[in-house]
């Protein structure tokens, strides 16, 4: 699909405007791009979180497709139930149409509280696409750390204090955890590259089994940058190799983008208020540690992708 085709597909509005997401939030674009990637009918589930809360304030809904929110930790189990119902009713001839299934969840609902539900649904092989919009903390409840929160970030539960300088652990590599389930299609994408995301969503919908998309979605409130900088933040995350764009198709890793001149990760962190404290001279060692870790992870990924 090229950008003109995408623009045309977006005319079929599956998530309407008028939702209450923050100015500068990235997930409406992510959701729309993903939903535009198939012409089949879609049923969506969604974990409790920003997306669900801002798009379904009763008596309104922003969803023009069938949608179910169950709880925080069970978006995958819920869509597994919907998909199985479809399978059963289709087998009985009660449904004729082809329907695709997509589950949305934030990082809290995926890396943390929903990990078991996701893992179970992936292992059972339900035919659905799981879309993780990763904004790197529990933003809906007020910016608490999750296991997706990057090292050094200040959150309301890991504030930059006199003794503890923000979060002191590196984030979990959820994409690799999903890879370990040996499902047909997994990809990491960013809201800064909608064509790449759409291409990946198309592949995900066509996969013969579960598929997983991990999409970086900067959060203006949680990351503390001006609301017109979301796409720029997401792009810088890719350009500093913190958020590589890659896919794993039937077990084969492929790098989708290799920055010719990666920017230092400090350049990406500098405009974000959550990292302010790291730019004090006494915290220089933390920046170095983060750069080193990013470089190591990038090297590992290059090897997996056969790039060096």
């Amino acid at each position: 699909m090229n950008i003109k085709e995408l623009a045309k597909k977006l005319q079929n509005v599956k998530l309407t405007s008028g939702h209450r997401a923050c100015s500068g939030c990235g997930f409406p674009q992510i959701v729309r791009a993903v939903l535009a990637a198939t012409d089949d009918q879609i049923v969506a589930s969604c974990a409790t979180g920003c997306l669900e809360v801002t798009s379904t304030i009763y008596p309104f809904t922003a969803w023009n497709i069938p949608f179910i929110h169950n709880a925080f930790e069970n978006s995958a189990a819920t869509i597994a139930g919907v998909e199985t119902a479809f399978k059963s009713l289709k087998k009985q001839g009660k449904i004729k149409k082809e329907i695709k299934f997509v589950a949305f969840g934030g990082d809290g609902g995926t890396y943390d509280i929903g990990l078991q539900s996701l893992s179970g649904a992936l292992e059972r092989g339900h035919k659905f696409v799981y879309v993780l919009y990763d904004n790197e903390a529990y933003m809906n409840t007020g910016i608490q750390r999750s296991s997706a929160t990057p090292y050094g970030a200040a959150t309301t539960t890991t504030p930059a204090g006199k003794v503890h300088p923000g979060k002191e652990q590196f984030r979990k590599d959820i994409t690799k955890i999903v890879v370990a389930h040996n499902i047909p299609y997994i990809a990491q994408a960013s809201v800064s590259n909608l064509m790449d995301l759409t291409m990946k969503a198309e592949k995900a919908f066509k996969a013969d089994g579960p598929a997983f998309l991990n999409v970086l979605q900067p959060c203006t409130l949680g990351w503390r940058y001006p609301s017109d900088q979301t796409i720029k933040m997401a792009k810088m995350a890719v350009d500093c190799n913190f958020w590589p764009l890659y896919e794993v198709e039937n077990g084969v890793y492929k790098l989708n983008y290799k920055p010719s001149n990666p920017i230092p990760i400090a350049d990406y962190m500098k405009p974000q208020g959550r990292f302010n404290h790291l730019f004090k001279p006494e915290n220089k060692w933390i920046l170095n540690k983060i750069q080193k870790h990013t470089d190591e992870e990038w090297e590992k990924l290059l090897r997996l992708c056969g790039e060096n």
Partner: peptide, 15 residues
């Protein structure tokens, strides 16, 4: 937890 979650999905789906 997933049993009841999947039941909710399935029942809402119309099964």
């Amino acid at each position: 937890h997933s049993a009841m979650s999947a039941c909710v999905g399935s029942s809402a789906a119309g099964a």
